[in-house]
Write a protein that binds this DNA or RNA. Structure first.
Lengths: 208, 208
DNA sequence: AGTTTTACTTAACGTTGTTAAATTAACACT
DNA sequence: AGTGTTAATTTAACAACGTTAAGTAAAACT
């Protein structure tokens, strides 16, 4: 019941223990459905002990998201190796979608929830970093495709193109996340929807 | 404080009074941030009286969505008059986006918030109705374009095509609604993003 | 040895969605 | 007219939540 003084390393270890327990529960059943007491029980601590490591539930969430933004960028980084820029762009889309659909609750928090503008001081991530900024990765790929002269002649605005591609993939993923259990619509297979979106986007953007 | 027996009309009136109060609050501050007691206070009733009209908070949300789904379908109905099926499809996309962007909070409730599965049988709206079902309207247009032989040869699944178009427009709108204030991304003009998405989708889907 | 600090725990507060019980008014029937 | 019955609504109450305050035991510092 009573404790020993802990080193910084031990403190950090407990911090990530909390984060990992919380993430597992959030991902499984959604943020709102998971209680602080439950997170604590998972790691055999009392609920209130979490508050000596995080200001509140929201802070736990932000910590998880921070690591997951990084996780997204990291998981996409592997695909940046692909030589052909168009294939690279295609792989990036697939990777992004895979991330969204395997971590729907994280994705909801990152891209489907209105949040105050991200304070660079508040986030540990660096903007315009090939390792940490997924949007920068997308922009880089789009820029490469553009430089290779593969886009249609009238498409010159790299940001605009990147945002349209993002919107296409995001549309499929977010609709899946918030509407797929809805019986009103006779939903096609999610992989078919993703595939067609990818095809349509490429055909619509690339030179014949 | 005490009551009179009420006619069906009066009951219905109070029901919509609750819905309207709840909608206003939900739209302003989000579903989770609004309490039942707050909704009740707005219409000078006790919190518990809501439960004689709705099973729970979720049921209030569903009822709100129901009326807004009808509003969306109604606003799209005019565009179904356009003769050329491709032009009709284009107009439908524009109309949908206009609804989303002029009623962002309603749109968020309808398409970006997780809610219990909508069973067509306990909705007041009629599925597959040209007046009440926006998805049916989209499907009808897609079907017309398909019948006119305007889609590429390999595109045969009307549901799949409709859902992809929906995802494209939804992607632009939902990204705008939840991320446009984010300074991380150098956002292009929303109308330019919509325009390009529309172009890309049509070029990707239609025969050359 | 005695004080302070650290790492926790238990108790407790205010709110939440929701249910149960109480209250009050109008109607239906003798 | 008096008496149930029913409907509409309220107040009281419950369990659970996020969070804060107060308490406790061991290690560390002096």
């Amino acid at each position: 019941m009573p404790p020993k003084p802990k080193t910084d390393a031990e403190r950090h270890q407990l911090r990530t223990l909390i984060i990992d327990a919380a993430r597992e529960l959030f991902v499984a059943r959604g943020v709102d459905a998971v209680t602080m007491r439950e997170i604590a029980k998972r790691i055999d601590y009392s609920a209130t002990s979490i508050y000596s490591h995080f200001a509140d539930k929201e802070a736990v969430l932000r910590a998880i998201c921070d690591t997951d933004f990084l996780a997204l960028a990291t998981s996409l980084k592997n695909m940046m190796q692909i030589a052909d820029p168009v294939e690279r762009m295609r792989a990036l889309g697939r990777g992004y979608a895979a991330f969204a659909l395997t971590h729907p609750n994280h994705y909801r928090l990152m891209f489907m929830t209105a949040h105050a503008p991200i304070n660079p001081e508040d986030s540990s991530l660096q903007q315009n970093s090939a390792e940490q900024d997924a949007y920068f990765q997308l922009k880089t790929v789009v820029s490469a495709v553009h430089s290779a002269g593969r886009f249609r002649a009238d498409l010159q605005d790299v940001d605009l193109i990147a945002q349209t591609i993002w919107a296409g993939v995001h549309g499929v993923c977010s609709l899946q996340i918030s509407m797929s259990c809805d019986k009103w619509v006779n939903w096609s297979d999610i992989s078919a929807r993703l595939q067609l979106m990818q095809e349509v986007m490429l055909r619509g953007l690339l030179r014949d």
